[in-house]
Amino acid sequence: MKDIIGFIKRSEQMGLLIVLVLIIVVFSLLQPSFFSVPNFINILFAASLVGLIVLGEALLIIGGQIDLSPGSVAAFSGVLAAILFRYELPALLVMAIVMAVALLIGFINSQMVNALKIEPFIATLAAMQVFRGLAHIICNGSSVPIRNQLFIYFGAGRVFGIPISIIFFIIVAAVFIVIINKTRFGRNVYMIGGNETAARLAGLNPQRIKVVLYMLTTLLASITGMLLAGRMNSGQPVAHNGLEFDAITVAILGGVRFSGGSGTLTGCFIALLILESFKNGLMVLNVPVFWQQVARGLLLVAALSVDYIRQKKAKQH
């Protein structure tokens, strides 16, 4: 029995791996320049920015929550950093301030859910609107240039030819994988997502766990926002549009159940590479940008269908 369960689990991720290989093969055949180290680094760079949000979003969904604000918070954070640099502040101080603001936003999100009992979807939809708006307001709607060299280095620099944001993402992802699989906190995230009432009756504190999850997610969003701002030498209020939807797509495609209580980050990691290869492939093939959006939507539908089929299969076993 153990072997059978193990096989199903492995085959779940085996399925994702096959899809990933297929996508790479198909795009490489259609456009040989897709299959090159520089392009793979492009894919990984884009993946690292979305990936940071995926980590937070996956944990939130496993915990029975969701956050629609990361894209807006990322844009707001990039613009805020750019504005702070106008005052000639050192890079580390600017980053600390922006991250502190992001933590505060996450705390507010969690309090809307915990104290005001607003549905997570609605509460963070509001935050998404508010911070997209504020991102435009604080810079009068136009992008703000950044000249701080250290800040730009974090966004655009490379170590041994690998962009810093990729390295940073891999380290953070490793930490998150350990947290979710090995720690009591990680287990409790699964438990509150599985059944919040039962969790409370078993002595857990779901509200405290939620505060941590929302704060982590906006913190990661602010880091994503700053990494991209560094790379673009500017804070742009229109950046990261739909970032949270990419992250949610990845999480669901990676096997996180939308109803909460189950999912793995390993699955999400493969799904992240699938999404980013797919996006990159469409770009390399010069598919018009609106068709790219259609294709991404269809990918989400495909992800949900897979989720549905998997559930049905699980019931048969």
Partner: peptide
């Protein structure tokens, strides 16, 4: 609705 964590294993349900 108040006791079990339906998506989790019996081991995890016991140790919570």
């Amino acid at each position: 609705s108040e006791g079990i964590f339906r998506s989790r294993s019996i081991k995890e349900n016991m140790s919570v």
